[in-house]
Write a protein that binds this DNA or RNA. Structure first.
Length: 562
RNA sequence: GCCUCCGUAGAUUAGUUGGCUAAAUCGUCAGUCUCAUAAGCUGAAGAUCGAGGGUUCAAGUCCCUCUGGAGGCACCA
């Protein structure tokens, strides 16, 4: 019988190119996606982790104009900045693409054509403000005017912040373009709409089956469906985007939110010839996204997919909340936060940051980055507990036992301990399968806690005085736990995990596919000899944190990049 | 204005379909070992589970009101 490996396609939200990521962006999709993808590879699933930049839409266009730079050059520079940051964090994207690539444009057009052939597209005229001076149709938030109901003069777009009334932008009087302050005119043009009304019952049926999603995500999606989803425009009158392959639409492009998620597919297609097996055959698709993206990934994207009919729907939409900063929001203008582009300069070990960020992955609620917590979590949990267990074990073996181990003749003697370890490992696995990454990491740390207790109870430093072989047996058990810990923790702290394997003098790579199962066995060979240990993580001193804080509060303005 | 989610020890969180003295980690305090990055181990203090009311033999867990926070209310990325 041929064993069929389960396929898993994992995606992180496509970052938009009008800013440089801060820690909130990392912890809100790239890192959790990465941890999950790395775990899936270890488990032996046929895994792909896909991402890329979203380069379409009005904001990027305007930003490029403002900087007086050609759009493609602008996007390329920002793309490179993003890529550099994700690489530094060791985000293991199998492919990190761009929605500006031809492969994406072609695929989007094909994708659309199929939806049209299936009868889910209709055409209608809509009225919009057009700015003669800037030569663009203005999205609502670029229009300011007087609110009809309360007379507030600076009402923006579709909602008046004074009387909080939702309003039709076109009812604003004394409308002004927020870019140039000129008065825009109302123009009418044709647009394409996806017939959501026709799709919503199918969508609802599908959503109701997704009981394994987080409640917040599912409830939000169902609330939208309940309110009734109307037709939604999928085209725009701007120049930055995928051209609409239809007569009369030569000057229009697809709305960014229509083409962006198709970027997940095109990025897969760019990466492998076998792309269709991840999208059309038996596979599980996971989208890791921030909460602002939930409606798009749970409503509009699945609707597009249903309308198209060729592709799998997401298996899970993992919606994450936000990371705040010391009691407030991240703010570039107030220099409040941790911005990514200068982090490499601080010399911090990426794994240390990954580990702390894992503690604050906003899985169920908004969380907070706090400097005091950063220090104590790293120093006591990661280093004092986890790092120290590895270090005390390896140092002991190296300096007191000449690096040598002896497999216990009678493993029964340690069966109680080994059983506890195995239970923990199974628990970690269950949590990771559910993408409960933060909880799983805590269990991994409690496993090193178990190791520390074992070490203490066995008192190898006392045993050594009478029985060297017995000591080598005790340490054999400890070293094997180090090996297990390296495997389990490798999704979180991949470089450190590899370092542990090197010191353990093991040939395999703990980030290797299918190695997970070996964490459940006792695997160190008899008479194995380990290498000279070195410290995995440096402790964080108050001085280092002060310096770090200063460096990462700085973030360049987009214009400084050109 | 309407709707959804959240509010558990100083901090961060666990708490399955309501059921025994509400768990854990960090921090604090005390004791202790010494192989280890002054790390480890043991123990203690610390929560009327946001406030009030209700249903029930029994509620952190269900219902209502209030309060504080997060988000949605569609062409906004």
């Amino acid at each position: 019988m041929v064993k069929v490996t389960e396929k898993r396609l994992i995606t992180a939200a496509l970052p938009y190119v009008n800013n440089i990521p801060h820690l909130g962006h990392i912890v809100g999709s790239h890192l959790p996606g990465d941890i999950f993808a790395r775990f899936c590879r270890l488990k032996g699933y046929d895994t792909l982790y896909i991402g890329g930049t979203d380069e379409h839409g009005t904001p990027a266009l305007l930003e490029a104009k403002k900087q007086k730079i050609p759009l493609d050059k602008f996007c390329t520079t920002i793309y490179k900045e993003h890529k550099k940051i994700y690489d530094w964090f060791n985000i293991s994207y199998d492919n990190f693409s761009r929605t500006s690539k031809p492969i994406h444009h072609e695929l989007t057009q094909e994708f659309f054509q199929k939806i049209k052939d299936n009868g889910y597209i209709k055409e209608a005229k809509i009225k919009q403000f057009y700015c003669e001076h800037d030569k663009i149709f203005l999205p609502d938030r670029f229009v300011e005017g007087t609110c009809k109901s309360c007379g507030y003069e600076h009402a923006r777009g579709d909602q008046c912040e004074k009387c909080t009334k939702v309003l039709d932008t076109l009812t604003l009087t004394k409308a002004k373009c927020t870019l140039c302050s000129n008065t825009p005119e109302i123009k009418e043009s044709n647009h394409l709409f996806l017939k959501y009304d026709k799709l919503s019952s199918k969508l609802e049926t599908w959503l109701k089956k997704q009981t394994h999603w987080r409640h917040q995500v599912l409830n939000l999606a169902l609330a939208w469906v309940k309110e009734g989803i109307k037709e939604r425009g999928i085209t725009r009158d701007i120049e930055n985007g995928v051209k609409v392959p239809l007569e009369g639409y030569e000057d229009k492009v697809f709305y960014v939110w229509f083409d962006a998620p198709i970027g997940y597919i095109s990025s897969t297609k760019e990466h492998t010839k076998d792309w269709e097996s991840y999208w059309k055959e038996d596979s599980k698709i996971y989208h890791f996204i921030g909460k602002d993206n939930i409606p798009f990934h749970s409503i509009f994207w699945p609707s597009s997919l249903i309308a198209n009919g060729d592709y799998n729907l997401p298996y899970n939409v993992v919606g994450l909340q936000y990371l705040n900063y010391e009691g407030g929001k991240f703010s570039k203008t107030h220099k409040r936060g941790v911005f990514c582009e200068n982090i490499p300069k601080t010399g911090i070990n990426p794994d240390v940051l990954r580990a702390y960020l894992t503690f604050v992955i906003p899985e169920t609620d908004d969380t907070e980055f706090k400097w005091s917590e950063f220090e104590s979590r790293v120093n006591s949990d990661l280093i004092g507990n986890f790092g120290n267990f590895i270090n005390r074990t390896l140092t002991f073996v190296h300096s007191k036992l000449n690096g040598e181990l002896v497999q216990p003749k009678d493993l029964e003697e340690y069966s109680e301990f080994n059983q506890q370890v195995t239970e923990k490992i199974n628990k970690v696995e269950q949590l990771l399968e559910k993408a409960e990454l933060r909880h799983a990491f805590q269990e991994i740390l409690s496993l090193s806690d178990l190791g520390n207790k074992f070490f203490n109870d066995q008192e190898p430093w006392v045993v050594l005085k009478q029985d060297e072989t017995k000591t080598k047996e005790i340490l054999y058990i400890c070293v094997d736990l180090c090996r297990k810990l390296a495997i389990l923790s490798s999704p979180y702290i991949p470089s450190s995990s590899e370092k542990i394997f090197k010191i353990l003098n093991l040939k395999e790579n703990p980030t290797k596919e299918s190695i997970w199962e070996t964490s459940k066995e006792i695997k160190i060979p008899n008479k194995h000899k380990i290498n000279k240990p070195e410290v995995l993580f440096e402790k964080l001193t108050p001085e280092f944190i002060e310096e770090f804080k200063k460096t990462v509060a700085e973030t360049s303005n987009i214009k400084d990049l050109f």
